[in-house]
Structure formats: structure tokens, C-alpha cells
Design a protein around this nucleic acid. Structure first.
Lengths: 154, 154
DNA sequence: TTTTTATAGTTGTATATACAAGTGTTGTGT
DNA sequence: ACACAACACTTGTATATACAACTATAAAAA
């Protein structure tokens, strides 16, 4: 299904516009799919993302700003995301004794268990779309997206 | 900037995961950029989108469900989006006399004027990213994104 | 030492989104 | 004609996001 078909466009669009719409729409499709995956675990996509970041710390606590800068959506409200995870006992939160402005967030065993359970499903989700194109095309797509968004001129 | 750099990932990711993150992140970048563009006009991206759809009707009124199916985010609440536009006198809304379940939404002159003013800026926004890659790559990117999200197998 | 500035995080508010339930209208089957 | 299902849209509610103002702590400057 082309992007014109998706939005039932009658007028011809140039490729610059089509790429924008294609990226926006593809993100919607991926996101809907992922949310569906997370629903049984009562996690939002961003909540999952925070857990994933915390696991990546390998036992080392993460401050709020460390979490923030590793998230895709740089404007997410980390405080409230962590609040939600705290309520579900998936993380712990403590004031850092070295610098009392900072907060140390750690993933709990329960959090790790959920991630472990989710791992194969997330993997499957990623490959569900990836298998539509060849490995070479997949690599090319990454290359093009990175090049596309990286503004060299002005 | 590669997606690994963006999220400061230390572990190696496979291309399937990278593509997902690249699409999500690129959409964020585009969206932030676009929101910034719309801000002086007090329009959200989705509100702009509705106006654009209405202009595309060329004077023919659009029902709620017609608007809905032409939007990128299929879950948007069209009623409330139109409400917002109505408050700003950018659209009109009337019950359809043929089928009183239906609503006829039309863009006003004021709405058309704003779109006209926005046209060059939106165009510029689209080309801001597009010019990072060649026309051939742009076309390839469209092709790959459409192929990527269209699930043929299962 | 006191003031100022910067940092780290939280909270308030307004808006947006997701999802389900509700309302009124039209079409269909009996 | 009547009951019932389908349709088109709206509303309620809970959650998420965006952005700015605020609090507390630490570092730097005067």
C-alpha cells in the first residue's frame, strides 16, 4: 500500500512530501503494533523503553537525566514515567548520597523478569517488519534514514 | 549521527532493531521541527492535517469519517480536532440534510488563507530534510518504507 | 562568606491521544 | 409497522505529552 493509498490522496505529491508522510505513517504502524504487544503487560512503549535502558545499566543506577538522554522522545517526562514503574514495583528510586540533587533509579528483579519474558516478543515484533525486505535493503534503509535526518547544510 | 549515538547505546543492535529505532527517532525529529513551524499559527500538526484534507476537497464538504480515513493517525479524535478548528473559525460544521447522522465540515476563507501562508513554509520544511539525500535516494527511501511496512507473509 | 548561577528533578496546567460507552439516525428483516 | 442491527458521530475517562514554573542542591563568583 503506497502512502497515497493510505491517505487516499488524489493529488500528486513530490517525493520530499511522500517521505515525510511515509515516515510518519510507518511510525504509527510500528507503534500501534508495539502497543498491542505491551498491552497484556500493562506497559506503554515509553515505559518499556525506560526499563530497557535500566537493564542496559547492568546494575549501575541511572539518574533521571541519563534516562532522558537515552530515550527516543527527548521530551518525555521521565519523573512521571518512573513514577508509573515504581507503582508497579518494576524499579526503585533513591536520592543519590554523593549529590543529593540526583536520583538513582534501578530496575528490580520483577522488572528484569518482565523484560526477559518480553524479549522474544519484542524480537519477533522487530523482525515482523524487517522480513518484508532483504538484509541488504534493511541496511540501506538504516543508512538512508540516518543520512536523511542529519542536516549537513542548513 | 547514528541511532546508536542518539540513544547512547553501548551494546550492538541488529539491523531490524536499528530500523525500528531509526524510524521512531526520525519521526520525532520531523515532528518536533514541524510543531515548531506550526506554533506561531497556534496549530497542532494534526489540526494542520485536517485543514489540508479539507482544502483537498475543493469546496466539497467532508464528513467526519472521510477526514478520519485520510489522516495518518487513524485513531485521532476527529470530533475534537474539528472542535478546535471551529473555535478558531477555520472550519464550519453542519449536519448533513441528506443523512442527519453525517456532519459536513468545510474549510473557511480564513482557513484557506492560513494554509496559503503556510504552504511555502511546509514546503521548505519538507525539503529541509529531503535535500540531505539525492533524488534517487529519496525515491528509494519511499520504496523501502512502503515495502517495509507492507506485510506480505504473516 | 554571601550571592549568583547552574544543575537535577518535580509539579502544574493545558492539550492530545486511546479506548470504551453513549446518542441519535438510518437501513434491514420480519 | 416494528424490532433490531449498523452507522456516524460524540462524550467520558484515564493516560500521555508539551511546556513552563518551581524547589532543592551544588558549584562558581564576588
Amino acid at each position: 500500500m503506497t502512502i497515497e493509498e493510505v491517505i487516499k490522496s488524489t493529488v500528486k505529491m513530490d517525493n520530499a512530501k511522500k517521505v515525510i508522510l511515509n515516515i510518519m505513517y510507518t511510525q504509527n504502524v510500528i507503534n500501534d503494533n508495539f502497543s498491542e504487544l505491551m498491552k497484556p503487560y500493562d506497559l506503554s512503549g515509553e515505559q518499556y523503553n525506560v526499563l530497557r535502558i535500566l537493564r542496559g545499566q547492568k546494575g549501575k543506577p541511572a539518574n533521571m537525566c541519563v534516562i532522558q538522554e537515552r530515550m527516543l522522545a527527548k521530551t518525555s517526562n521521565t519523573t512521571r514515567l518512573v513514577d508509573k514503574l515504581l507503582l508497579k514495583d518494576l524499579v526503585t528510586r533513591n536520592v543519590c548520597s554523593d549529590n543529593r540533587r540526583k536520583i538513582e533509579v534501578l530496575i528490580t528483579q520483577k522488572g528484569l523478569d518482565i523484560l526477559k519474558e518480553l524479549d522474544p516478543k519484542v524480537d519477533q515484533h522487530e523482525h515482523f517488519f524487517a522480513k518484508n525486505i532483504s538484509p541488504e535493503e534493511l541496511e540501506l534503509l538504516n543508512y538512508l534514514l540516518e543520512k536523511y535526518r542529519t542536516n549537513t547544510n542548513n
